[in-house]
Design a protein around this nucleic acid. Structure first.
Lengths: 386, 497
DNA sequence: GGGTTTTGGGG
């Protein structure tokens, strides 16, 4: 029933996310050979955290454990300051969620395949090779079509189940020449589910609790870091649950997350590092805005690859944050324009709801994500974009 | 001195903000006649530090795009009677041109070019040599201004009713709040308009050195331009159209075009794409990626290039035929064709047909519509019951099951439960009927007539295949439906596979 | 300026 990809898909994200949809949203059915560490470039880190595989950008969703471990192992690195850096996601899983696509731009047709990150680390010295301009995976022609296919299957299954008794209009009833007859007689409810939106899906919706980047920001920069700078600390995040009112009430309940079924696959994610981003012959790249004593990359094809003991706890980034120590200044790594942008972003959000995924953050989430480290390998360079 | 002044921006675009708008399209300073002297592109003084004014014909343009927090840019290629053909030997009829770069603080202050061959008037532009080429710069955020005049009777947006109509000497869009026009400009506009028409009639304008053949797209390093015919416009979703393109090389490509950004595109038209890249991640179909500065433009009616391509490029449906051989295909297949006599019938979404038809004055006054949808289920599910015996007098239908001969005529009585982009997310499905008792839709199944399907195994088999084809993922129906008694009946529509 | 924003499905 799935398509035949005669040609190898070059984008790791597209292949992964597509497989999830083609397997009914069941991560356990996704090919195990794809469950390897993901090395990606952090395109943006605030107010949206986006990573790319060299072709597309997606939003990674960090579990509380992932954030805690990261801060523990890299005390002087802010997640929110990872913009333009490389990170390796060693433990992850994928899950399907129903969301409001009018508010979540990394979703389509009210569905979102989420990359749940259980463990990740930064590769501060690594530079990836220049790639094409990364675009939103959820705006890709084939991927959108794959999601439409997923919905099409769900709809047909629902119809087969709910419309067993057929009801065809009698010819006598449709030949009266009644100009006033209303057209709504032709509207047929697909399923008995409540609400106007189709929701008769059979997939098991994910419910892993993750931490919003805004909360990570506050955690790293201080609860009033924003208000001090003129913005408002009270920010609202779009997305998460469907429907605003619904989203609020839902999250309010604060349901617990079952840590067990959680990520069947999390454990399988190990193997060797996946070559997400194409490496290329390195060429020293220098970035303008981040004065970093970037080690010139070894000449070989793979490169600088600092294989920092990934799994070890001792590791301290050879080259911490730009300032050398954890920064609490919100302006770090930001140009005046960016700074202005995020202030505006917060400004715009204030007054909104506080919950995002509709789940509670506090409690530990699913899966005992055992951080498995792959060997960071094929490093490469990525010339800085302006 | 000035005439045809308007108080409101003549552009149909909505100005969202009301910040300090730019100056008038034609700042009025002196009260005397010829305040503005228009120069030919070739005469503009490269040494002059003074701003200059001119009229030119647009032959290429980026979409206005944002470059940073405070700037928007729109870059154009322009020509006029003094600059339009490369003079060097061996360049054939390659076009020569000057570039015009407009800068603004707001997106709304820049011109949107939907069609090549239209006329642009610029006030207060500076000129310099950039890469050995004449480049005009217009700072709309300061004192420069622009105005666009349609070369054809109507502008691209006016043709689709998306812009207020204007007369020949009034721009269909311009920067600033006001627009001024000197008496002596009438002749200038009419002259350059005539020149533009002849120029496009005699030359390709978009010469071969200005675009890449699609069969060479994959080999391109970066972005490139395209000139192709739109074979099909498939509504992928509420915001997006998927264009099926084919160029002179015969290669077919698909590309996503936002409805709001490109509202003027129509099937059958030839377009030029300014900046596209080959998508290496699309493995099921050939796809072109566009950027925010990419533009898709049509050509003025006299275009020789567009005319040649429209007649030369045809759709052999090869992509679809191959797609239908797969279990699941990511290529949308439109299974039907509607009678040519409905070519001009405007299309309406299912949402309009089933949720607005009785409330909207326009819709309720009509009874024939063009619409596209996909079939989720067909009733009766038993194909053998698609054809019934119909008694015209009693209007009763009877199953043809059984050996006893039934009286009356054999007719199709089938109900399609359909859906489309406008109703994609809701919990409804909509009934569209294929009832041939009055002749409507009699040819829908491409030659398969209504016969006793309990006996005619051949017809039954074909219809069972059509049943599968119609309800398979990514199969669409483009149909004309007629409203009768609140129901919609398919007519003048035929499956072509 | 033959380009890369967020308005993050005109920009």
């Amino acid at each position: 029933m799935s398509k035949s990809q005669q040609v190898q898909q070059q984008s790791a994200f597209k292949q992964l996310y597509t497989e999830l949809f083609n397997n009914g949203g069941d991560f356990g059915k996704v090919s195990n050979n794809l469950k390897k560490p993901l090395k990606c470039y952090v395109k943006e880190s605030y107010p949206h955290f986006l990573v790319t595989d060299g072709y597309f950008f997606v939003t990674p969703y960090f579990t509380k454990e992932a954030v805690t471990e990261f801060h523990s192992k890299f005390p002087n690195v802010n997640i929110v300051d990872l913009h333009d850096k490389v990170i390796v996601i060693n433990n992850w899983s994928l899950e399907l969620r129903r969301v409001n696509s009018a508010e979540v731009f990394t979703s389509y047709a009210n569905l979102e395949a989420r990359l749940i990150v259980h463990s990740f680390k930064p590769n501060l010295q690594e530079r990836l090779n220049p790639t094409r301009y990364p675009v939103n995976l959820y705006r890709d022609d084939e991927f959108k079509t794959t999601i439409q296919h997923f919905r099409h299957q769900a709809l047909q299954q629902s119809l087969a189940k709910n419309l067993k008794q057929e009801n065809i209009p009698d010819i006598a009833k449709v030949t009266g020449g009644d100009k006033k007859a209303k057209v709504d007689a032709g509207i047929v409810r697909a399923s008995t589910s409540k609400g106007d939106e189709f929701s008769d899906f059979s997939f098991k919706e994910g419910n892993t609790a993750t931490i919003r980047i805004q909360d990570i920001f506050v955690q790293e920069k201080g609860k009033d870091a924003l208000s001090k700078l003129g913005g408002e600390g009270d920010v609202k995040v779009k997305g998460g649950a469907r429907g605003k009112a619904k989203a609020a009430s839902k999250s309010a309940k604060g349901k617990k997350v079952s840590a067990k079924k959680a990520d069947v696959a999390a454990a399988d994610v190990r193997k060797s590092v996946d070559k997400i981003v194409k490496y290329t012959p390195n060429k020293p790249s220098s970035r303008k805005e981040t004065p970093q004593k970037s080690q010139s990359v070894p000449a070989a094809g793979k490169s600088s690859a600092k294989k920092t003991a990934t799994g070890s706890k001792k590791t301290l980034p050879a080259n911490p944050s730009p300032s050398g120590k954890k920064s609490t200044k919100t302006t770090d790594q930001m140009t005046m324009a960016q700074f202005k942008r995020y202030l505006e972003w917060h400004e715009k959000k204030k007054g909104g709801k506080t919950s995002s995924g509709g789940k509670v953050l506090g409690k530990r989430s699913a899966g005992k994500a055992s951080a498995t480290s792959g060997k960071a390998s094929k490093a490469s360079k990525r010339s800085a974009k302006k | 001195m000035s005439s045809a002044a308007k108080n409101q921006r003549s552009t149909s675009r909505v100005t969202k903000k009301k910040t300090t708008g730019p100056k008038d399209a034609a700042p009025k300073k002196a009260e005397k006649g010829s305040k503005y002297e228009y120069v030919e592109l070739t005469k503009a003084q490269l040494t002059s530090v003074t701003a200059q004014h001119f009229y030119a014909v647009v032959i290429d343009a980026t979409f206005p795009y944002k470059t940073n927090q405070e700037r928007y840019i729109c870059s154009l290629k322009i020509v006029d009677p003094s600059l339009y053909l490369k003079k060097e030997k061996g360049t054939g009829d390659n076009s020569d041109y000057a570039t015009l770069v407009l800068y603004a603080k707001r997106f709304e202050d820049l011109p949107i070019i939907h069609r090549l061959g239209d006329i642009i008037r610029i006030h207060r532009a500076t000129i310099r040599l950039y890469n050995g080429q004449r480049q005009f710069n217009a700072n709309i955020f300061y004192s420069s201004s622009w105005a666009l005049f349609s070369t054809d009777k109507k502008s691209a947006l006016q043709e689709i009713g998306g812009q207020e109509a204007t007369s020949d000497l009034v721009p269909f869009s311009h920067s600033g709040k006001n627009f001024t026009f000197q008496k002596n400009e009438a002749g200038i506009v009419q002259n350059i308009r005539k020149w533009a028409q002849q120029y496009f009639t005699q030359y390709s304008v978009i010469s071969n050195d200005m675009f890449t053949a699609l069969n060479k797209a994959q080999a391109q390093k970066g972005d490139f331009d395209v000139v192709a015919k739109i074979l099909q416009i498939h509504e992928l979703d509420e915001y997006t159209n998927e264009l099926k393109l084919k160029d002179a090389s015969g290669q077919v490509f698909y590309t996503l075009a936002l409805k709001l950004k490109f509202p003027h595109l129509r099937t059958g038209e030839v377009v030029r794409i300014r900046s596209a890249t080959y998508d290496e991640t699309s493995t099921q179909k050939k796809v072109l990626l566009l950027s925010h500065y990419s533009n898709i433009v049509t050509f003025i009616s006299t275009s020789k290039l567009a005319k040649e391509l429209r007649g030369k490029i045809t759709d052999d449906r090869a992509v679809e035929k191959a797609a239908l051989k797969q279990d699941v295909s990511l290529s949308a297949v439109v299974l039907t064709e509607v009678d040519k006599k409905h070519a001009g019938l405007p299309a309406h979404s299912l949402h309009d047909l089933f949720h607005n038809a009785d409330s909207d004055k326009e819709l309720s006054s009509k009874d024939t519509f063009r619409t596209q949808f996909y079939v989720t289920k067909i009733e009766p599910s038993d194909v053998k019951e698609w054809v019934k015996a119909y008694d015209r007098k009693t209007k009763k239908v009877t199953s043809l099951k059984g050996s006893a001969a039934k009286g009356g005529d054999n007719i199709f009585q089938v109900s399609f439960l359909v859906k489309d982009a406008s109703t994609q997310l809701n919990n409804n499905t909509y009934r569209v009927l294929l009832y041939t008792h009055d002749g409507l839709g009699a040819n829908f199944f491409n030659g398969v007539k209504a016969d006793n399907l309990h006996k005619n195994a051949d017809a039954r088999k074909k219809l069972e295949e059509y049943s599968e084809l119609l309800t398979r993922f990514n199969s669409y129906v483009d149909a004309v439906v007629e409203r009768r008694n609140g129901f919609y009946f398919i007519k003048d529509t035929r499956i072509v596979y």
